[in-house]
Computed example of a mutant assay.
Amino acid sequence: MPASSARPSPVAVGITVFRPTPGQVASLRARVEAEPRLTIVFDNGGLPAEDAAHLAARGALVLSAGRNIGIGGALDAIARAASGAGAAQVLLLDQDAAFTPAQVSELEAALARLTTLSLPPALVGPRPEAAPGAKAPAYPRRPEIPDYGSLVPVEFLATSGSLLDLAAYARIGPFRSDFFIDGVDLEWGFRAWARGYGCWMETRTALPHRVGAGTIRSRLLGIAMPRQPLFRMTAYLRNSVYAWRLPHVPGRWRRRQAAYLPLQALLYWADSGYRPRVLALLAGAVLDGLRGRLGRPKGLPSE
């Protein structure tokens, strides 16, 4: 029976894919076949047509803009499709996420508990864990907001693994498509808090995260960061610097980033072998952020 014909809950599952490997496509097929909820797949490029047809035949809703529109645009398309299908929440995942249907139910129950608070929830997500050879993201705790049992208030969450309340999303507004890839979740989380909604981490369930290819570490600087393609590092720098001008981004975060970003850029440059071209592109990304020149990152791989 198609997955979409037996949805027992108001939760849809949205998955973004970009140039998935055969293994990732196989996992995606298995997920759609095992998931009783509606699954929405947004193809940002590279999903073979036969696999898209297979997913659709199993009840998935497969979307595409015909080109890579970035993670922000893809998430917005998924949210709109989930709302149009009658869902009240949508679980956002990327193609690497190993998240079981039982864990979706855990987040659904957590979101229901949060609705009893005076501060309405925008989203709830799992505790992050590092996948082998990767660095787990860190979610700063939201000051002055107490824990609610196993739920911890955090400034933002990675979109992958987050259960998004669609009524809150409609009031908070869409993800920033002009950020394209990095910082989309961070900016939206701060905006949610500024508009009277909370972001929460459910510590009783976890999701391994894979960002980049390995980790760059410096004992001297005392930092570690994912080893990412140059276009992602420049997008990260650009969007982080641009976010400093946004009124809903707290001063405490701006101060933290002002101290941390130069160290990350230095570490990335060192890992590249101190190549002058890399330094020029990193500096150019900072300048783009200061000037508000956003959109598709330079050096983005073709679809």
Rank of each mutant, 00 (worst) to 15 (best):
A109F: 05
R127I: 02
L123H: 06
L117R: 15
L114Q: 02
F179G: 12
T159K: 00
K135G: 04
L111N: 04
A167S: 14
S160W: 00
L157V: 04
V124A: 00
L119E: 10
S150F: 05
L123P: 01
V104E: 10
A109M: 07
L166V: 00
A167V: 03
F99H: 09
V154G: 01
I145M: 14
A130Y: 05
A112W: 01
E129R: 15
A122M: 09
Q103G: 05
V104L: 12
T100C: 08
R113N: 09
S162N: 01
E106R: 15
I172N: 05
P174H: 03
L166Y: 03
P128D: 11
F156W: 15
E106Q: 14
L123Q: 08
F180V: 01
E108Y: 07
E108F: 06
Y139C: 03
A102I: 07
E144Q: 15
A168M: 10
E129S: 14
P101K: 08
L163I: 02
A170F: 01
I145G: 03
A122Q: 05
A122F: 14
F179T: 05
R127A: 07
G125K: 08
A168T: 06
S162V: 00
V152K: 13
A170Q: 05
P140E: 10
D147S: 09
K135Y: 03
P153E: 08
S177C: 00
